Amino acid sequence: MDTLCYSGLPLEEQRAAFLAIVLADPLLRDALARARTLDLPDWLVVSGALYNSVWNHLTGKPSGYGIRDVDLFYFDDSDLSYEAEDAVIRRAEKHFEGLPLPVEVRNQARVHLWYPQKFGRPCPRYSNASDPVCYFASKTHAVGVRYDADRLVLVAPFGLDDVFSFRITPNRVMDNQQTHEVKGARARECWPEITVVPW
């Protein structure tokens, strides 16, 4: 397969190809089906598991190759306590038992409470699960998918051309240079076709 066969196509064609690849991947199909039945408010599977699976498909690598975990965002501002989020995380552990990769579940309504302590700088207070996707260190990573009724919906604020062009492009909205470079270097080890655009 031509690895760049979707590069440069109109967004609607890229969206259709992206969602078809996601649904054809057994790991993602199972993760999304389980996420749907976990019944979290405003949920979204984001980032690496998605774009890595697209790269695996286009380069002929097996499902799950190069993927560390599945990131599952949800948004619930009714209780911002650690305990409430921890209860959801523990429920999710049982719900996703048997999936070949761990699922990391995080309430995006709480991020502004712990982010400054962990990363030494503030982050915005998000208003839904899609907001944080706009702040990822690389525009390429800013993708999310969820079910809306029986339809798979894509969140991709910067489009999909970077993903389909094997290009990791910085998102300079926050000071995330180190994350961009570290993730870019790791991705190149797994998919040498990738170009990392300098910060």
Rank of each mutant, 00 (worst) to 15 (best):
G60F: 08
G60W: 13
K61G: 09
K61Q: 15
P62D: 12
S63M: 08
S63D: 15
S63L: 06
G64D: 11
G64T: 12
G66S: 15
G66D: 09
I67G: 04
I67W: 02
I67K: 02
I67P: 07
R68N: 15
D71F: 02
L72K: 05
F73C: 02
Y74H: 06
Y74T: 01
D76C: 04
D76A: 02
D77E: 13
D77L: 04
S78A: 10
S78L: 02
S78G: 09
S78Y: 00
D79E: 03
D79G: 00
L80Y: 09
L80T: 09
L80P: 12
S81H: 05
Y82Q: 09
E83M: 05
A84C: 05
A84Q: 03
D86N: 11
D86K: 08
A87L: 09
V88F: 01
I89L: 09
I89F: 07
R90A: 14
R90L: 12
R91V: 00
R91F: 00
R91D: 03
E93Y: 02
K94S: 13
K94T: 08
H95P: 04
H95M: 04
F96G: 05
G98M: 09
L99P: 04
L99V: 08
P100C: 09
L101T: 05
P102V: 08
P102W: 08
E104I: 10
V105T: 08
N107Y: 08
Q108N: 13
Q108G: 02
H112S: 13
W114I: 07
W114A: 09
W114N: 10
Y115C: 07
Y115E: 07
Q117E: 11
K118G: 01
F119K: 14
G120C: 05
R121G: 06
C123F: 13
P124S: 13
P124H: 14
R125K: 15
Y126L: 12
S127H: 12
S127Y: 04
S127L: 10
N128T: 02
S130H: 03
S130K: 14
S130D: 10
D131G: 01
D131S: 09
P132Y: 06
P132V: 03
V133Y: 03
V133F: 08
V133E: 08
Y135N: 14
F136Q: 09
A137Y: 04
A137C: 14
